[in-house]
Design a protein around this nucleic acid. Structure first.
Lengths: 205, 205, 205, 205
DNA sequence: AATGAATGAGCATTCATTCAT
DNA sequence: AATGAATGAATGCTCATTCAT
């Protein structure tokens, strides 16, 4: 049986989510009223409560969507063993640099510490293990030495979150990227030149 | 007779600040009412508004106090040229690790994004330049090579803020510290063993 | 079955307006709290803000109702050309004297200058032009001479607002009425006796 | 003994009164805080309470000053029997037209109904009796007929307060003045031309 | 699945007034 | 005569949530 495209439930739900996210980013979580969300979504206030338990429930759904998108993006690329380790690193970084300019920045800009913390948590739950697997694979192939692959990944994600934050971008962004690659290469015991192409994505505007 | 401690303005002001900080840390900024602050400070609510413009004004004063304390602490140690570069690095890290366990953690735990952002901003305004000077001094002494001292410092502060965040502490904290030192040493082109003692403070509970 | 009286919006709205007006007249605008209005109207405080933007918004609505009531009352009588000019003048004065004892007095007694000014403004926007048309019609019929009908009307309304203010009423009210009619008749160039019946309404308690 | 010009009590008192009046006129009574008055007067808040009982006490003093100034002005001129009745009427009107442009307008513009009412009351306590005496004197001299001198004066003051209100001034002000004089002359049973010069002051800008 | 009128607890802020100095 | 730190009651307004339809 074919599922007809109704203008029903799923539609309304995501319209609410989109409207809420837009408002949150614009004026912050605390300053966004349920009235404003309903208005922006073009539904009645009661409808919000038909689809979500509470204002927090809306945040939950937004964060979940966000976490899923990272997960899918990264996992898909990393699992593709037809590509070399450095190539996969490069592809993931291209993707992350894209997301960074969009979703990340949006969510982190939100003036609601909980969203900030929870998206950061989601990021740290997914990214370091993925990178660690890549570092280990590279070590097994003799590309580099990986003493503490998971912990190194954590550090790189933490540093990267700042280094590549679009809000922090300035004329020293490229130097930051260089320093970042130097530290990373240093930890892996290789020349920075080997790693540089894989992180080039973050150096472009 | 010299009048040393006035029971006047300064006293009340800082009593309010202390009470407010305690509440903010305990239950978060949004959930702390001006009533609660007044009660905890042992003053009338009006007194809050005699000394500060608004609830936000109290946050301003807290952040200012915090920024000053970092500034003083770090500047004092780094300026002391009677100590070697590595020794000063060690001393600063001891101090930062202390502050980290107290003030930093407190302020970052506050569920008010503005405090988080503004203390982070204060941290990034003060720390990287200070570390950069140290790296440069070390480079001049031939201790290491400093390609991008300021940018490296930025990355280390960003990574360090996460690595040494008491909230993130777990059984892998020591491995994280190792990875951190390896990356740092790698960027400076030296053996991790040289740097390890200077960062030991962060490995202790 | 036809649904005549909705227990919906309109009902609640005017119940709030009535309650607010009563309170304003009783204790003044400033001394009337939104809590008091809500209590008197038998609704929750939030309901006030569902129907009106602010406390001032309630005043707006009251003044608008008031202005409409004058307009309707006066316009209706004056347009009725089946009655003679003097007769219509008499009927309007009866009506105004009625309103004067009720709404006018209420609204002017409110200790909120804005209400006073705005109701006065409403009064002056409606009444002088209406009287002027009557004076002109009378002049065309040769009843009197109307040199400055609009300006004379303005003056009469200004004087009348005081002369017939129930708050100013005392044992000299009737003498005031006589003086008023003499001045009016004098300006029209006729005997006071011709005009007196038309203004008799204001002489009764 | 010569009274030295101290910068003492009387000075401070009137400086407070001036500052308060300026603020009241500017932003209204309710919106003027004691803090603002103290600041504008260049004294400490406590000083306000040394000189006046309360905020209302300041209003009392302002209104009293105002009433005194009318009293003095009008009484002085009217008592001067070396001048003819019409000439005294002219002189009083010149003076009132001056005050009208300044003090009256200021005080009436205040968004505090009490000031409005009390200054109006002061005006009505002083002016009508004074004018009535003039009308009676003129009647005794056979200049005109004065049926209800006091009541006529009341009406004229009420009308005049509006007719000559600077806030109501427009291109029809002169026509209003004409209508006013016609009504007044009509009530006195004389030609408008006789009275016109005495009221000319109100027709000038 | 959707509506929107109604709720009521909660909160920051204002401000006239007091009083020890 | 003057100060200014401290007071605390009072109040307009917000907003997530509910529920009958």
């Amino acid at each position: 049986m074919v599922r007809e495209a109704r203008s029903g439930s799923g539609d309304t739900r995501s319209r609410i989510l989109d409207a809420a996210l837009a408002q949150f980013v614009d004026v912050g979580y605390e300053s966004t009223s349920m009235d404003a969300i309903a208005l922006a979504a073009g539904v009645a206030k009661g409808t919000l409560y038909y689809h979500f338990d509470s204002k927090t429930g809306i945040v939950d759904a937004i964060v979940a969507r966000y976490a899923d998108s990272i997960e899918e993006t990264v996992a898909g690329i990393l699992a593709d063993s037809t590509q070399g380790v450095l190539e996969r690193l490069r592809l993931v970084n291209i993707e992350l640099s894209r997301l960074s300019g969009r979703t990340f920045a949006q969510l982190h800009r939100m003036s609601f510490i909980d969203i900030h913390k929870r998206t950061t948590r989601a990021l740290f739950a997914v990214l370091p293990p993925a990178f660690a697997r890549l570092f280990e694979e590279g070590a097994r192939q003799g590309l580099w030495r990986a003493t503490h692959p998971l912990e190194l990944s954590e550090i790189l994600v933490a540093a990267g979150a700042y280094v590549f934050d679009p809000e922090q971008a300035n004329e020293r962004t490229r130097r930051r990227l260089d320093a970042f690659v130097e530290a990373c290469a240093g930890a892996l015991g290789i020349e920075p030149g080997i790693l540089r192409p894989a992180f080039a994505a973050f150096g472009e505007p």
